[in-house]
Design a protein around this nucleic acid. Structure first.
Length: 587
RNA sequence: GGUCCCGUAGCUCAACUGGAUAGAGCAGCCGCCUUCUAAGCGGCAGGUUGCAGGUUCGAUUCCUGCCGGGAUCGCCA
C-alpha cells in the first residue's frame, strides 16, 4: 500500500512534470503548520530557481492542476509559495481502510533485499556487562529487527572480545594469585580440570587489577603481552584457561542478554577466527599489502588526500601477537567465505571510529570487502549527570542486571500504588513489572539521537510519565482493555469513517509508520521510530479522551472507532516490537 | 598542538538534510475521573538556537573566525 503522503507526492509530481519540472519537487510531507493543513509541499520554491519564474506563480499552476482531484478537498498557497493540502474525507476513509487491511500496518518492504551482518562489537570476556553495554545492545537490536522487518536477510553476531591482550592480563593475574594451578606449566599438555578455576566475579576483579598493575609497571605489561602471544601460539594450558574464561563469561552474558530481550544469531568471538590468521597474513605479505615497520607487521592505509594522519593498522605486534584489527580483518574474511554479506554494520562506541576507519581501509586494500560495504554505527558515550563517565555513588560501574532490577522494582511499586493487578499472582505481577521496567530503560536509550553523548540519569530511566516507554505500553494496554470489553459485549469493528479532528489526526499518525521505518533504518536511527511511536500513542490518547468508544450510542460510529482502536493497537505493537518492547495485557 | 564531534526552554532531548510562528517530555502554575485504566487529557508560562560575520527570497541546518565542552592521535579494546 501507499501512504497518503506518497500518494499526494505522486499527484504533485505529475503536476510538476506537466510543467517540465522534475517530479521529485512534488514531494509532500507532514506540515510544519498543522493548524493550516495536514500536508505541505515546498517544491514550488525550489522550482522557482530552476524555471526562473516566481514561486507563487508556479505554486498556483500546481494548485490549479490538482485542486479537482478526489483525494484533495482544499489546496491553498501561503507565504512565498508553500502549498498547503487538505485531504478529502474520501481520502481519509480510503487510507484507513487500506491500513486496516494491510498485514504490515502500512510499512513497506524493501525492493532490494540484501544480506546484512550486524556486529555488536560484543562485550569483552574479561568484563561484566555494565550500563555502557546498553547502547550497542539496544541500538543494534532495534536495527536488526528493523532490517528483518524491511525484508533484509540479517545475521547478527555478538562478537565477543576474547582474543587480545585482555586474555594475557587474565592469565598472568590468575597466575599471580594461584600459581599452583596446572595451566601455568609450559610443558603440560592436559588433561585439564573440568571445573573452571574462576567465577564471574573473579573475572570482573582480575582484569581491572591486571590492567592497573600493567599500566604502572612496564615489566608487568610485558608479561601480559608475552602470555597473549603464547596463547595465540597455541600453548595448551593457556588455551584451556581461555575456554574456561569464555564459558564462565558467556553463561553470565546469556543471562544478561536474555533479560534484556536481545538475541543473536551467532555467538562468535575473536578467537573463532584465530585459525585463519596465519594464512591471511601470509597472503597479505606475499601480495605486499602488509609490510614490516618498527618490528611490527602493518598495513599502511594512509591516503594522499587525508586531512588527518592515519596510522597504519598493526597486524602483528613486535611480540608476534594478533591485535584487535587483525581479528577484525580475519572475521571479515571468514564472513566473506561463509555468509557473503552485501553489507556489514558495526554497532560500536564512537570512540573506536578511527579503529574502524583503519580496518575498513585495510579490508578494501586487501580485497576482503569494498570499504563502502562496511559501516561503523557509532554512538555517544554513557555519562553521569555531571557529564563524566557514569559511576555509581560508590564510584564503581553499575551492572546492567542491577539496573534492570531497579527498574522492575520501581514499576512494581507504581503498580501497587495504583492498585493494578489485585488478585493476580506474584509471577504475573512480576512479568508486568519486568516489561514496564524494560520498556522504560530501552526507550530512554533509544529515543536519543545515536551520536550524541548520553546522560545516564537513573530517575529518568525509571520514570513512567511523559515521553517514556511505559507511556507507549499504557496506550496499548488501554486499547487491549477496550477490545476485551467490546468482545465480551459482542461488539464488532466496522468501517472506519473518521468524523472528528482527533480521529483524522490518528489516521494521519498511523499513516506515518512507513516513513518512520524507512527513515530509522536508512539513517540507522531508531530514535526516528521512537518519535513516531510516541506521536502515535499521543494521537491515540487524545482520541481516547475525546471520542467515547464503547459508550457511543451510534452503532456505525462505535464500530468505526472500535476498528480504529484495533488498527492502532496492531501498529503500536508492531512498532514496539521493532524497538524491542513488549506490551503487557494490563498495567 | 593536529583531526573529528557537540553547544537549542531551568533540566533531558527533537526539528524529516535550506522553509512558514524552532517543537516534545520533565520540573512550575491552572483545569478535567459515578463514560471505556488519571502511568492519562486540556490549558498557561518558558528561546537573540554559545558569540561574530558571510552565502540568499529564507539559516538551528551550509561557509569562515572566535568562546566553551568532549573524543581521538602506532604496537589496549
Amino acid at each position: 500500500m501507499t501512504s497518503l503522503a506518497n500518494h499526494l507526492s505522486d499527484l504533485l509530481g505529475a503536476a510538476f512534470t506537466a510543467l517540465d519540472l522534475p517530479a521529485p519537487l512534488g514531494q509532500v510531507q507532514a506540515s510544519g503548520r498543522p493548524d493550516l493543513a495536514p500536508f505541505q509541499c515546498n517544491g514550488a520554491l525550489a522550482a522557482a530557481k530552476i524555471a526562473k519564474r516566481a514561486p507563487r506563480e508556479i505554486a498556483q499552476a500546481i494548485a490549479d492542476a490538482i485542486k479537482e482531484h478526489p483525494s484533495i478537498t482544499q489546496v491553498s498557497i501561503a507565504g512565498p509559495g508553500f502549498l498547503n493540502l487538505e485531504p478529502s474525507q474520501a481520502a481519509y476513509t480510503a487510507q484507513a481502510a487500506a491500513l486496516a487491511g494491510d498485514e504490515r500496518c502500512g510499512a513497506s518492504q524493501t525492493p532490494t533485499p540484501q544480506k546484512v551482518i550486524i556486529d555488536f562489537g560484543g562485550p569483552n570476556v574479561a568484563k561484566p556487562m555494565h550500563v555502557g553495554h546498553l547502547r550497542s545492545s539496544v541500538i543494534g537490536d532495534a536495527l536488526q529487527r528493523l532490517a528483518r522487518f524491511a525484508g533484509h536477510k540479517v545475521t547478527s553476531d555478538i562478537h565477543l572480545g576474547d582474543w587480545g591482550l585482555q586474555m594475557g592480563h587474565l592469565i598472568t593475574e590468575l597466575e599471580d594469585e594461584q600459581p599452583d594451578l596446572p595451566y601455568f606449566d609450559a610443558a603440560a599438555t592436559g588433561p585439564w580440570p573440568t571445573e573452571p578455576p574462576v567465577t564471574l566475579d573473579d573475572l570482573a576483579r582480575l582484569y581491572p587489577q591486571a590492567a592497573t598493575n600493567a599500566k604502572a609497571d612496564e615489566g608487568r605489561m610485558l608479561r601480559s603481552r608475552k602470555a597473549t602471544a603464547a596463547l595465540q601460539a597455541g600453548r595448551a594450558g593457556y588455551l584451556a584457561l581461555l575456554h574456561h574464561f569464555i564459558a564462565v563469561s558467556r553463561a553470565g552474558l546469556e543471562k544478561d542478554f536474555d533479560a534484556l530481550g536481545v538475541h543473536f544469531d551467532l555467538w562468535k568471538g575473536e578467537s573463532d577466527v584465530h585459525h585463519l590468521i596465519p594464512a591471511m597474513i601470509e597472503g597479505f605479505t606475499a601480495r605486499h599489502v602488509a609490510e614490516k615497520s618498527d618490528g611490527a607487521l602493518v598495513i599502511h592505509i594512509a591516503r594522499d588526500d587525508d586531512k588527518k594522519k592515519q596510522p597504519p593498522l598493526i597486524l602483528l605486534s613486535s611480540e608476534g601477537s594478533a591485535l584487535y584489527g587483525t581479528t577484525d580483518l580475519a572475521t571479515i574474511l571468514d564472513r566473506k567465505n561463509t555468509i557473503g554479506p552485501d553489507h556489514t554494520l558495526y554497532v560500536v562506541d564512537q570512540r573506536q571510529g578511527q579503529h574502524f576507519e583503519q580496518v575498513f581501509r585495510a579490508a578494501d586494500k586487501a580485497g576482503l570487502a569494498p570499504q563502502t560495504s562496511l559501516e561503523h554505527i557509532g554512538f555517544g558515550t554513557v555519562n553521569g549527570t555531571d557529564g563524566k563517565p557514569f559511576k555509581t555513588r560508590e564510584g564503581g560501574v553499575m551492572r546492567l542486571s542491577d539496573l534492570l532490577a531497579m527498574a522492575k522494582t520501581a514499576a512494581r511499586a507504581r503498580m501497587a500504588e495504583a492498585g493494578i493487578g489485585e488478585g493476580m499472582d506474584e509471577a504475573a505481577l512480576g512479568d508486568i513489572a519486568r516489561k514496564v521496567g524494560l520498556a522504560a530503560i530501552k526507550f530512554a536509550d533509544l529515543r536519543n539521537q545515536r551520536m550524541t553523548n548520553y546522560v545516564f540519569d537513573l530517575e529518568r530511566f525509571t520514570a513512567f510519565e511523559g515521553k517514556t516507554g511505559p507511556y507507549l505500553l499504557y496506550a496499548a494496554v488501554r486499547i487491549k482493555s477496550v477490545l476485551r470489553k467490546a468482545e465480551a459485549q459482542g461488539l464488532t469493528p466496522g468501517t472506519i469513517t473518521p468524523k472528528s479532528a482527533e480521529e483524522k489526526a490518528l489516521i494521519l499518525a498511523l499513516d506515518g509508520f512507513d516513513a518512520a521505518c524507512i527513515g530509522a533504518l536508512s539513517k540507522r536511527a531508531p530514535h526516528i521510530l521512537c518519535e513516531h511511536v510516541f506521536e502515535l500513542a499521543q494521537a491515540f490518547s487524545r482520541f481516547y479522551a475525546a471520542c467515547p468508544i464503547l459508550p457511543e450510542k451510534d452503532e456505525a460510529m462505535r464500530a468505526s472507532r472500535l476498528a480504529l482502536a484495533a488498527l492502532t493497537l496492531r501498529q503500536l505493537e508492531c512498532a514496539l516490537g521493532l524497538l524491542g518492547l513488549e506490551a503487557p495485557e494490563r498495567m
